[in-house]
């Protein structure tokens, strides 16, 4: 049985014949669409390396069945920079990660950046580093680049002129 599944990935509509419902969203991105920017760390929801933004919300793509997300809009690390004739421009969060050494080996970085983009959109952490760390705690970094990551999120947020702290409760 093969079921056509339609996803809009980084703005492009893609229809994929899923011949096995066991395929996760992560494997669909990496193995079927060859978008290997999204990483597989633990494959069990424990590390955040596979973080992508689905219908505006960050999730772990390793614990999502692709077939269950028929019709969804997916944003991956490949889709965040602006493309352009002169080579385009990195996303402000990507720039901030570079400026603040928010990485070492880089394996966790796509997930960190997708999570950071979502943290800024969620608008709940404000300029409190403790809230940023808590909001980013679903992304582990084996190299321990946490200090640079926190700084990068705070700076990118400023650069993006994000809305001030939204009241949570």
């Amino acid at each position: 049985m093969s079921v056509p599944t339609t996803l809009t990935v980084n703005g492009v509509k893609r229809t994929i014949e899923i011949d096995d419902p066991r395929v996760t969203l992560l494997d669909l991105l990496r193995e079927h669409l060859h978008l290997t920017g999204t990483k597989k760390g633990c494959d069990r929801g424990q590390c955040g390396a596979c973080t992508v933004i689905v219908d505006g919300r960050r999730i772990n793509s390793c614990l999502a069945l692709a077939i269950s997300h028929d019709g969804a809009e997916v944003l991956t690390i490949e889709g965040v920079a602006q493309s352009g004739a002169q080579g385009g421009r990195l996303h402000p969060v990507q720039e901030a990660f570079i400026a603040h050494d928010g990485l070492q080996c880089g394996f966790c970085t796509p997930g960190q950046i997708m999570s950071a983009i979502a943290v800024i959109q969620e608008g709940e952490a404000g300029d409190d580093p403790e809230r940023v760390r808590e909001a980013m705690s679903g992304n582990l970094c084996r190299c321990g680049a946490y200090q640079g990551i926190t700084e990068a999120v705070l700076e990118a947020q400023k650069a993006l002129g994000a809305a001030s702290v939204r009241k949570v409760a």
Partner: peptide, 12 residues
């Protein structure tokens, strides 16, 4: 709720 899992998992 906010003390459980991670933001990504809670979103799902």
């Amino acid at each position: 709720l906010l003390s459980g899992a991670s933001a990504q998992l809670r979103n799902a």
